[in-house]
Design a protein around this nucleic acid. Structure first.
Lengths: 232, 232
DNA sequence: GGGGCTGTTTGTCGGATCGCAAACAGGGAG
DNA sequence: CTCCCTGTTTGCGATCCGACAAACAGCCCC
């Protein structure tokens, strides 16, 4: 096992309530694992035998419908805890997590959770906050899917991607990981064709700039205007 | 304050882990309040100063968009904990809860939560499970909204209503509280007109039976078939 | 350096579903 | 018992968006 330095977890909100020494003890239960691009971290329906903190890279979490369609639930960025199905009382993962870049994560066996919370009750609180935040996000998405037209949904999704994983570049802000039109479609409940058309239209207006698996936003404010403008 | 009998909470999953004596102590912090039909229990954006357990009646939880559109997030049935924003680290309620029938709820001040969890850590675990379940449900809804056509979404919503609050009647199972076409529309991201058309079509096929603020399902299996049949 | 694979763009067509409008009906209030 | 309010039904036209199709273009791998 690698030597894990406590500084690794300093930037992880879930452990913010712990002291340095406590973090050391929590880390003693973990190991770090590499997930090469394209590999699967855990699979929908599989036994929830681990939970994780992402240290480096990016993951995509997708849910598969019985009919075989995919929906992108979220992207995991460094510092986030994920795969916390067990904390929610589940025995299996409700979705699949895949590395979309070479990634590195801390891994705890699920069996360690009861021990850890018993010793550090603040962890239970952290987990509750995390799940609560995700619940909020999910509800926001439900509201968007239920009330907004496709173009506004795509604008909202893109703005969220920028907030979560935006990287400043010369001519704007780009999504910091490779993302296809199909991915955006699966986030917003539409088709890659429609996403492509929308992005093309925005590009013609100078709002964004496209590329293969790449989206650069030149004018975030303009995008915001689209996201917030009630239809027509 | 009323005398609150511990048996009140026997049927509440959130308190399942507590012994009878512990339940007494938890109850000591609560009072019970009546909410007449149509009254508001808490409001979106309002300070999250209480959390609740519904004892009797039914609540509707709705989220309002900036543009003024409503989306029904869920219905609260007796035995459920609700208004647990504070447990998730929020200072305000993310949605509005209204009584759709005369209702009765136990009310705790949010300030009591830290005290209670400190004494009964199992409560934190319960809260985590509850929020986890809601997160799952929200994700299922996201997937449905993103991938299914309106008719199937309505079928799924109706089946969920039956499971949660179905009441056996002579000719089938009915939703146990008054619910309008508009409500169903706000649950499924469509319009009351489309819901009305769909229900009329189903009624013509003998699957359901309508009524003012009333939906009776005659053939749950047939509904299920619609819900699960991939489009066309 | 050249396939070939994967991702992107664009056009056309059709259909699901929404918006608008108007009539209808159950049921509570007085 | 009757009025009126709220909820429901139904028709029709408009349109957003998905399905199908075909061509194009990075980029990885051999």
């Amino acid at each position: 096992m690698n030597a894990l330095d406590r500084s690794i977890l300093d930037a992880v909100p879930a452990f913010a309530a712990l002291t340095g020494e406590e973090i050391d003890l929590v880390l003693a239960h973990a190991r770090s694992l590499r997930y090469p691009k394209g590999s699967t971290v855990f699979e929908q329906g599989g036994a929830a035998d681990s939970f994780f903190v992402l240290l480096h890279g990016h993951l995509q979490v997708v849910k598969l419908t019985p009919a075989g369609q995919q929906v992108v639930i979220r992207y995991v960025v460094p510092g986030e805890m994920f795969g916390i199905a067990v904390q929610m009382g589940r025995r299996s993962y409700p979705a699949t997590a895949q590395a979309i870049m070479d990634s590195l994560a801390l891994v705890w066996p699920s069996s360690a959770w009861p021990t850890l919370v018993a010793r550090y009750p603040a962890l239970a609180e952290s987990a509750l906050h995390i799940v609560g935040t995700r619940l909020d996000e999910a509800h926001v998405r439900v509201v968007e899917l239920a009330t907004e037209e496709v173009e506004r949904r795509v604008a909202h999704a893109l703005l969220r991607l920028l907030k979560q994983a935006g990287r400043k570049v010369d001519d704007g802000i780009e999504v910091a990981f490779p993302i296809t039109r199909e991915d955006v479609a699966q986030m917003t409940g539409t088709t890659l064709h429609t996403v492509s058309r929308i992005l093309s239209a925005w590009e013609a207006r100078g709002l964004v700039e496209g590329g293969r698996q790449r989206i650069v936003v030149r004018d975030p404010h303009g995008l915001f205007a689209i996201a917030e403008t009630p239809k027509a």
